[in-house]
């Protein structure tokens, strides 16, 4: 097996384990964070803090490199502009997130845990992404 593929698999695996450990694969817990007016569960803020604490170091190191440790091109985003799709898309994402408590990562993990409802969400999410691709094709930017 190609080393890059293996490391991608392991990164996905650790990511998924992290979601399970942190409780974020459980939509009810995510909604407990998003419900500021109810009995509030701050856990998600600590998940983000733990992830960013490690991430700050890693991305600082990555930003100084031209290639990855496996020799791949370092592909870090370069855009700095705040445009309408970014803001409206993110606002829209928050609405969808709040409706069921699922964002893409936890949905994949819950799917792997055999949850039928996660399968339904994931298929709908893929359909939504396909709609985006069709819209992009109609209006080439």
């Amino acid at each position: 097996m190609n080393r890059s593929l293996l490391s991608a698999f392991i990164a996905g695996l650790i990511f998924g384990i992290g979601l399970l450990v942190s409780g974020m694969a459980n939509p009810a817990k995510v909604l407990g964070f998003l419900d500021l007016a109810g009995p509030w569960d701050p856990s998600l803020a600590l998940v983000m803090s733990g992830a960013v604490a490690v991430g700050l170091i890693a991305f600082n190191l990555a930003g100084k490199r031209q290639t990855s440790l496996l020799g791949d091109v370092m592909r870090l985003p370069t855009r700095q502009d705040i445009d309408k799709p970014l803001v409206l898309g993110s606002l829209g994402f928050g609405i969808g997130w709040g409706l069921a408590g699922f964002c893409p990562g936890p949905a994949l993990v819950a799917l792997g845990a055999g949850e039928l409802k996660a399968l339904v969400f994931t298929v709908a999410m893929l359909s939504g992404m396909a709609v985006y691709e069709l819209l992009q094709r109609q209006r080439p930017s």
């Binding site: 890059s4 392991i10 990164a11 890693a58 990555a62 990855s68 440790l69």
Partner: peptide, 15 residues
């Protein structure tokens, strides 16, 4: 769990 997620993101960007 958050630190593990950060570790996964770190491994992915560095490797």
């Amino acid at each position: 769990g958050g630190a593990l997620i950060g570790l996964a993101a770190a491994a992915f960007v560095l490797l």
